[in-house]
Simulated scan of single mutants.
Amino acid sequence: MKRRTLLASAAIALSLGTAAFAQEEITAGFIYIGPPGDGGWTYEHDQARQKMEAHFEGKVKTVYQENVPESADAERAITQMALGGADIIFTTSFGYMDPTLAVAEKFPNVKFEHATGYKRADNVSTYSARFYEGRAVQGHIAGKMTKTNKIGYIASVPIPEVIRGINSAYLHAKKVNPDVEFSIIWLYTWFDPAKEADAARALIENGADVILQHTDSTAPQAAAQEAGNVITFGQASDMAEYAPLPRVSSIIDNWTPYYIDRVQAVLDGTWTSTDTWDGISTGMVGIGEITDAVPADVKAEALALKDAMAAGEYHPFTGPINKQDGSVWLAEGEVADDGSLAGMNFYVEGITAEVPN
Rank of each mutant, 00 (worst) to 15 (best):
Y43S: 03
T42K: 02
Q138S: 10
G152C: 13
E196L: 06
A223Q: 07
V328N: 15
I31L: 13
A129P: 03
S125E: 12
I185V: 14
D87V: 09
L7M: 11
A54T: 02
Q80M: 11
S183F: 06
V328L: 14
I204T: 05
E66R: 02
N345F: 05
S128Y: 05
A224D: 10
D275M: 10
W277S: 00
T215V: 15
E334A: 05
T256E: 12
V328A: 09
I154W: 08
V328I: 10
L267F: 08
L187R: 11
P158E: 02
A304S: 13
Q235E: 15
E133M: 02
E57A: 15
D275G: 09
Y64N: 12
Q225G: 15
W255K: 01
D179H: 07
A227R: 11
I252R: 00
S168L: 00
E24L: 09
K144A: 13
T218F: 10
G228S: 14
V355R: 06
R135I: 01
I204E: 06
L305A: 01
G39V: 06
I287C: 00
I154A: 09
N357S: 15
T27V: 12
K195L: 09
N357Q: 15
A308R: 03
I89C: 03
W329H: 14
K119N: 13
D261Q: 15
A197L: 13
G117T: 04
V298A: 12
R120G: 12
P69D: 14
P220G: 11
T272Q: 13
H45Y: 00
I280K: 02
I287E: 00
V157I: 15
P36A: 11
A222L: 11
P160I: 01
M309N: 03
Q324D: 11
A302N: 02
R135F: 04
T189M: 07
Q235W: 08
N167I: 04
R130F: 01
G333A: 12
Q138C: 06
L212W: 11
I290E: 08
E349Q: 06
V162C: 05
A336C: 07
H55S: 08
I26H: 06
T116F: 04
